[in-house]
Design a protein around this nucleic acid. Sequence first.
DNA 1: TGATCTTTGCAATTGAGTTGCATTACAAAT
DNA 2: ATTTGTAATGCAACTCAATTGCAAAGATCA
Lengths: 139, 139
Amino acid sequence: MKMTIHEKRLQSRDIQPTAMRMRILLFMAETKSVISLSDLEEKFTHADRTTLYRTLKTFLEHGLVHQINDASGITKYALCSENCTCSYPDDVHVHFYCLSCEQTFCFPHLGIPNYDLPENFTPSNGNFVITGSCPSCSS
Amino acid sequence: MKMTIHEKRLQSRDIQPTAMRMRILLFMAETKSVISLSDLEEKFTHADRTTLYRTLKTFLEHGLVHQINDASGITKYALCSENCTCSYPDDVHVHFYCLSCEQTFCFPHLGIPNYDLPENFTPSNGNFVITGSCPSCSS
DNA sequence: TGATCTTTGCAATTGAGTTGCATTACAAAT
DNA sequence: ATTTGTAATGCAACTCAATTGCAAAGATCA
């Protein structure tokens, strides 16, 4: 039985590879960028907002994407690397939010310090965003 | 002319020290915690939501408080230290968001690495939040 | 085929955040 | 002290992202 790489990717995370999900995964893999629910809506005008929303939720719950909270206040998502478990500190990396164009970028090569937290604070995940101006918007 | 320490603090940031603002500043200084607009609403039941909202905005614009975006998706605020300018990397520190009680904590002693960003990314601020379980919620 | 479970679409709701405008409080000038 | 102008506050309404309930469509398996 033949299977695309994306189909395998969904199944390896225990997500039923429906047509809709395949299309959304493909889009995220192609654009390689950080997207919001609204971005998906603009791309998939034929699909319902709820379906897109729930697809992102499903992806998130199954560790296929990670969630980013930047200064825009809008929840954004990005595909995880193949063997990511989205746990602090190893699988967390820095993101960059451009105040001008409001885009968010992944910096997978910029990891997170293993902070020595105050007693009894148990970390599980992290959200590290640097805000500023991106190359296209820096004059 | 006599002036309270909080009055001076407002004036040093060019904020008119009205009764409302004094009360809110006092509350934030007393609780020493990270709060949301809704938290203020619960405390100041007599005041209008808009006033509280605009007070926080004013405080933010004048650098009296800093803004935190945690995994809750709700914008939170915390008092800045006396000589803070809220700029990356020196004045940015780590926060902690507890998934269980949904509280957010300031860790002013945990600073931010001076990351070597990709070319032409110009940082101005940062938002670093570690998510997990706080002492009260860790069994 | 029939029964069941999952996914998708539609409609409606929630709640944070925000804005316009009228009113009130404050401060400066006379 | 009174007037006058500016800033702050309160009220009402609105926007928009996020979320939920329910019905219809589609997939899966006996």
